[in-house]
């Protein structure tokens, strides 16, 4: 799955709940360069709506995709600037 987006880094936030997936995603994105793609793997079902809301409301990031697979919610976030 990750090869589809050529992910630069994977962030594992499995078992963590709100607001951790968002806060850690933001921190991980800060450490990346423009053009990099972050893969976020979460078990928090609220992360589907939250990551989307965060990406919409935040400059310099673009949500490429969100994949729901059983109990796993995987998000692909690109740093655009």
């Amino acid at each position: 799955m990750s090869s589809e987006y050529d992910t630069t880094k994977t962030l594992d936030v499995k078992g963590q709940s709100c607001p951790m997936p968002i806060v850690k995603t933001k921190q991980a994105i800060d450490d990346l360069d423009a053009g990099d793609v972050l893969e976020v793997v979460a078990t928090d079902s609220g992360s589907m709506s939250d990551i989307q809301g965060w990406a919409d409301g935040t400059d310099g990031v673009e949500l490429l995709d969100q994949v729901e697979d059983g109990d796993l919610y995987t998000h692909y976030v690109k740093k655009t600037e």
């Binding site: 607001p19 806060v23 933001k26 965060w54």
Partner: peptide, 11 residues
């Protein structure tokens, strides 16, 4: 604390 830290993640 949750709203504050999340808002900070929004910048």
């Amino acid at each position: 604390l949750i709203l504050g830290s999340t808002a900070a993640a929004f910048g």
